[in-house]
Design a protein around this nucleic acid. Sequence first.
DNA 1: GTGGAAGGGTTTTTT
DNA 2: ACCCTTCCAC
Length: 667
Amino acid sequence: MAAPKKPSTPTKTTAPPDPMPPEAGAGIAYHQALNPAQLEAVRFGDGPLLVLAGAGSGKTRTLTYRVARLVEEGVDPRSILLLSFTRKASQEMLQRASLLLDARCRDVAGGTFHSFANATLRRYAAVIGFEQGFTIIDRGDAEDLIGIIRKEMDPPGDGRQLPRKSTLATIFSRAVNKQRPLEDVLYDDYGHFSDMVDTITTIREQYTRRKREHHFLDYDDLLIHLHLLLTEYEAVRQRLAAKYRYIMVDEYQDTNPIQADIVSLLADAHHNVMVVGDDAQSIYAFRGADYQNILDFPKRFQGTRIVKLEENYRSLQPILDFTNRLIESADAQYSKCLFTRRHGGLPPVLVMTAGENAQSRYVVREVARLRREGTSLDRMAILFRAGFHAFDLELELNRAGIPFKKVGGFKFTESAHIKDLLAHLRIVAAPDDQLSWRRVLGLIEKIGPKTADRIFAAVRAHSQGAGGLLSAPLKMKNQAKLQPLKDLIGALTDAPEAVARWGELVFSYYLPILRAKYDDHPRRQRDLEQLLAIMARYRHLDDFLSDMVLEPPSTAIEDGLAAAEPTAECLTLSTIHSAKGLEWDTVFILWALDGRFPSMRSMEDPDDLEEERRLMYVAATRAERELHFTCPVQIFDRATQSLLCDPSRFLDGIPENVLRRENYPDW
DNA sequence: GTGGAAGGGTTTTTT
DNA sequence: ACCCTTCCAC
């Protein structure tokens, strides 16, 4: 049970040095910083360009240098649009480009598809019939609204129930993202509900109608409306195409048909479009992404130049030997084989453990060992398929006193107390927001959904915004209960627009409610204080509220630690989806157990199974030096009533010299 | 109408 | 573990 040893001599990295600010007046040293393929992409002039970038091949570096290069050549930074997967990723690229060149690079327009859609739609809101603006609703809000409609519908009558609200939301979203009729999605993916197609269609019509009534846009609507704006309003499309003369898209393999269309529409006039991605790392099929999208790019744009980045700068050779093998045995033929000049190190290890808790103890033991040997916790990550897969490990890490942050899974802004506080601000910002009124009023004793809706209707009829609550005619017994809330709204509407001040007013109103409602209120109160700190960074309430939906802080703990002790080192726990694009010295992949990874559900459909394999590939290629898989055995699977005992089928047939096997504890 | 308690059926991944 | 429904007391 020898654990992988650190290589005795530090491995020499052949990766180009990190970008440094150029000497005053000197140009950027492209030749020293980039390999020939990267250089070709960076120096590519006008026209369509497809960069197929393997894992760890310097994709971000290439995009960063190309931005700097364009700006250096005199392109107006505001005419460059850089769409990437997370806002953090695009900010980092622009920051690095600024270091290479100068601060002009910060003026590059960038963000996620959704944040770009938000910004654009705000500018053209009147064109698409949102004269009074709009509120972006997150998944939870969407489900609440669907839940209200669902409850109003007649039950099917045969004793069965309609799909739960979260399932309905998934069905509706899938139909949009895959651009398929609702009926087809139901028939293919939810066969057991396909006979309710009429009722479900009605629910969706109602959902669409009410979103419009309340000026709500959900995540999908942002893309739909942007697409609509570009297709239906030729003048707008021309203006946007003239404004953004260079389009760049990161992680193009994860775009869905609407997003790919949006890119085409924007680039149609000039064809100056560069997309970067890796078909082998496409892991968002569940929301409509199709790796075929990136392979079809040259068909959309005639004369596309294709550049392949195949040299890996991240991982040691034994890790690449393994990951190449993993992706080679895929059914689909992906387009590359990676190589590296980083030698040394041991092959990855697969560790069989006697159950889930043994898995957790193995990870804790190894993390402690690595730390003793000098690896910072910041350089290690634990990756897993789904958020709840790490629950047991979290307990063990707490017991061992190892600090960690968890990324992915449940979000800060999804917890009830955060949503409560935001709802108070939302009714002021958007008085038509019935969902937020329900939430705010429902917090008051003896007010439930019915009373809340009545009060909402009265306020709305008064059409004075949230202040309508102060003058709307209400029943006497409601008047008294509502007095504190009225005082709050009065204070909010009187105070000048200062986001942080409003946050404090709501906080002091909400604190007694929080204390009465939750036993664990001290922890939640700390979260709220974090939220207030975040609010202080904003000048406009609308921006704050939009950001909380589009790019919420990934974890409460992360921000807590970052704020309190920015230097404290910290282990990362992450879903594989949230780990995309990141890298660590040492990576642990949990639950490499057939039935968990791949999951039972994915085994019926070859396409789903392929995506699981790509997911494992993404996880494994995050590692630079050490890679551990753990496989707890004898796990009972309730869905199939069977005992799971075998390692992931993706690891079958990989020889011992590529993947070592161990048992923990020895048995 | 509200609020609490009890019991049966379902659990990925993200903007 | 959580959602959703149902049932019952106020």
